[in-house]
């Protein structure tokens, strides 16, 4: 039973990690129907920014909490400005082009950013400081769920709730939903669609930055390539849950994380990805739009 609980929490942590990245994918897709392949790189840039700021602040002797807040803030601002700029440079000019064009543009952006960080920073693995120190009250259960795991779980939950509230109950959320449902009509009733799209990119990128900081702190290392694999998995999770749906992204991520964790625990970690992607295929066979996705024939 202990073993089961250990695996359960491993899976939940992993799922929450995926969710922090998947939310950005799903939001952008929900608004403009684009799979933003550069999202994983935004996550990586967030991690790098947090790394640089945290390193400088810890040399200057700031207290731990201040380092987390300031590094997080810097990562959010920096990543958000990247997200905003990428949308303006790589996607906006292609808004009326065939759907394949912005997709290719996104892949190109992803490669560009990877190589940019490779050249501007380093190809080596860098040690990411452990920003979240071990809480004393967690010690009795530390072998099951660590302090960083807890912070990731709580952050993901809070972020998901905040996003749902934002989209359901605020003015900007209403505008987002309108844009998502019918961009032309939204424009006609006076919604500034370009601004809504920019805001979406900024929110998505900010989430990726927070994810980047927390996940890097959990793993303890970063390099220019971390965005790729994390991005692919998060994308899978978003599709699994129904791309375009916020609760779907979180649910898909948790399902994916748990599948991988239990596959490792009870079968073999050699087959972790086999189980994860078999599950994806199975769900898509029976529910092509994902677990919580709405069937939307217009977008085909």
């Amino acid at each position: 039973m202990d073993y089961f609980i250990e695996l359960l929490f491993s899976g939940l942590t992993r799922g929450s990690i995926y969710a922090l990245i998947a939310l950005g994918y799903t939001m952008v897709y929900g608004i403009i129907g684009l799979i933003n392949f550069a999202h994983g790189e935004i996550y990586m840039i967030g991690a790098f920014t947090a790394f640089i700021v945290a390193t400088i602040l810890s040399i200057l002797g700031f207290p731990a909490l201040a380092i987390i807040v300031l590094a997080g803030l810097a990562a959010v601002v920096w990543s958000a400005s990247y997200g905003y700029t990428i949308e303006k440079i790589a996607y906006k000019p292609l808004r009326h082009a065939p759907r394949l064009s912005p997709l290719i543009s996104a892949i190109g952006m992803s490669m560009f950013l990877q190589n940019y960080v490779l050249l501007a920073q380093t190809s080596d693995f860098l040690p990411f400081p452990q920003l979240i120190s071990d809480f004393n009250f967690m010690e009795p259960v530390a072998h099951i769920v660590g302090s960083t795991d807890l912070v990731i779980l709580v952050t993901t939950t809070v972020v998901m709730i905040c996003l749902t509230i934002l989209i359901k109950y605020t003015k900007i959320g209403k505008a987002m939903r309108a844009t998502s449902q019918d961009r032309m009509m939204a424009m006609l009733v006076g919604i500034n669609v370009n601004r809504i799209i920019s805001v979406t990119f900024i929110i998505g990128s900010s989430l990726a930055a927070i994810g980047g900081m927390l996940i890097a702190s959990h793993i303890g290392q970063i390099n220019f390539y971390i965005g790729f694999i994390a991005g692919i998995k998060a994308f899978t999770a978003a599709v699994l849950g129904g791309i375009g749906s916020i609760p779907g992204a979180v649910l898909g991520s948790v399902v994916l994380g748990l599948t991988e964790s239990f596959a490792t625990g009870y079968v073999s970690s050699d087959y972790e990805d086999v189980f994860a992607f078999s599950l994806l295929v199975l769900i898509l066979i029976f529910k092509p739009s994902g677990i919580l996705g709405k069937a939307d024939t217009q977008k085909v």
């Binding site: 073993y3 899976g11 942590t13 072998h143 996940i215 694999i229 964790s261 490792t264 970690s269």
Partner: peptide
């Protein structure tokens, strides 16, 4: 005797398995 996936975001499941 197991292989892990390089680049995965989290290795806690395999560590729990080693412990087990």
């Amino acid at each position: 005797f197991e292989g892990v996936t390089p680049g995965a975001v989290d290795y806690s499941a395999i560590v729990q398995k080693i412990k087990q």
